[in-house]
């Protein structure tokens, strides 16, 4: 995992998300993060008393990076509310750097789960979410 490792790829940047439902923070809800470069993997976290959830950055290595192939990492965030799984963020990560999801901005978002999903194309991929980048 050295700096010079050419195969090292950030498959999911550090995530800070605040989840809101009906105007209130979503407290103690399980959030699942999923990514898929060469294999589908997940990790989980729980929202705190202010509705915040946090995930560290994930790096993986693959020799696929040594070929002139396009990078595509499937990414998804979902939350469990009242026993139901709701996907609130999907994306395809096309660049290996951390924070590439939001074009170099830290992945710090507010997600009002009452709002409709929209397509966001500002960062070179096709992101679908109701989350808004926190200024």
């Amino acid at each position: 995992m050295s700096f010079f490792n050419p195969t090292k790829t950030c498959v999911f940047s550090e995530v800070k998300a605040r989840l809101v439902l009906d105007g209130k923070p979503v407290v103690g809800a399980k959030v699942t993060r999923q990514w898929n470069w060469n294999k589908k993997k997940t990790d989980e976290s729980v929202t705190d008393e202010n509705g915040y959830v946090h995930f560290p950055a994930v790096y993986e290595s693959s020799v696929a990076r040594l070929l002139p192939a396009e990078l595509v990492v499937g990414q998804q965030l979902s939350i469990e509310i009242n026993g139901m799984q709701k996907v609130f963020w999907t994306n395809g990560k096309r660049e290996p750097e951390e924070n590439a999801e939001y074009g170099g901005n830290p992945f710090s978002v507010v997600c009002n789960l009452n709002e409709e999903d929209v397509l966001i194309e500002d960062y070179g991929s096709l992101m679908v979410t109701m989350c808004k980048l926190e200024k």
Binding site: Q76, N91, G92, L126, V128
Partner: peptide
């Protein structure tokens, strides 16, 4: 560029919206 987004259900979501 976007044909690469048919990879899995997460990326296909964006493709479908688009």
């Amino acid at each position: 560029a976007n044909v690469y987004m048919i990879k899995d259900e997460s990326t296909r979501n964006g493709f479908r919206f688009k």
